[in-house]
């Protein structure tokens, strides 16, 4: 059974807890491939994975509309935060609006690091820029790292730049970073994860492990798993990294 998922779930360590649990309970042998959301969806839409766990609602809706998946289940959320150097050259610390902070960074030509790897975080960041009507591509202050969240945080930190991070990865690395949280808890910064089994009907010539994919999706929204997700990180970081959301209405989520 092949699970294609995002780097944030692996970098935070959540999968190292959930996948062995799933394998033990159901006797599965899960192969987890951690790539960006873009690549995970691409693997799924080629029939190279049996289930995907990703966080890019817009791209997911399109992926489902193309007939790649059997269902799309809300699993959990955490939130994105804008982090930056304590000197805060753009003056955005404590700003309640992410959109406003983005504008200030562009106006002040403060260094910004973008992952530019088509991951969920990257797609989310690009959406925010286009929502404020700015095209930062090619600007000298707009640095692209092309790497996952962990290395990108280190890079932004070393370059005294701002960046967008999911809270889980930031908390996991906080002790090694000088960078601090600048903007948080703004509604548009919600980071929502869905699980989607790959549809065997779309790939008649490929042996999709549909039972395994479905079992994983069911596992992710099961009460005990949801409990584990809600507890994950409490012991190490003093606060949970994800909020379990199975069965909730996506529109009703709050930060």
């Amino acid at each position: 059974m092949i699970l294609a998922t995002t780097t944030s779930t692996q970098d935070s360590g959540l999968l190292d807890v959930l996948v062995p649990m799933f394998d033990r309970e159901g006797g599965w042998q899960t192969k987890t491939v951690s790539v960006g959301t873009g690549a995970a969806l691409a693997l799924g839409s080629r029939g190279e994975a049996d289930v995907v766990l990703v966080h890019a609602p817009e791209a997911e809706t399109k992926w489902m509309a193309d007939g790649n998946g059997t269902e799309r289940l809300l699993v959990m959320h955490n939130d994105f935060i804008i982090i930056g150097p304590p000197s805060d050259p753009a003056g955005i610390k404590g700003n309640p609006s992410a959109a406003d902070a983005f504008k200030k960074i562009a106006q002040g030509k403060a260094s910004w690091v973008s992952r530019d790897d088509a991951s969920g975080t990257d797609q989310f960041e690009k959406q925010l820029w286009s929502q404020v009507g700015i095209n930062p591509k090619g600007q000298p202050w707009y640095i692209t790292s092309g790497q996952g969240m962990g290395p990108t945080l280190t890079l932004a930190d070393q370059k005294n730049a701002y960046t967008l991070s999911d809270r889980a990865t930031y908390l996991a690395q906080k002790s090694k970073l000088q960078a601090i949280v600048m903007v948080e808890r703004d509604k548009p910064l919600l980071n929502i994860y869905h699980v989607m089994p790959v549809s065997p009907a779309k790939f008649p010539n490929i042996k999709i492990n549909a039972a395994g994919g479905k079992a994983f999706a069911d596992f992710m929204v099961a009460p005990t798993t949801q409990q584990t997700i809600g507890d994950f990180g409490k012991d190490k970081y003093g606060q949970p990294l994800f909020v379990p959301d199975a069965g909730k209405d996506e529109a009703q989520l709050s930060v």
Partner: peptide, 9 residues
């Protein structure tokens, strides 16, 4: 590679 990306230098 993995532990570096996690920041566990």
């Amino acid at each position: 590679t993995l532990v570096t990306s996690r920041g566990d230098f």
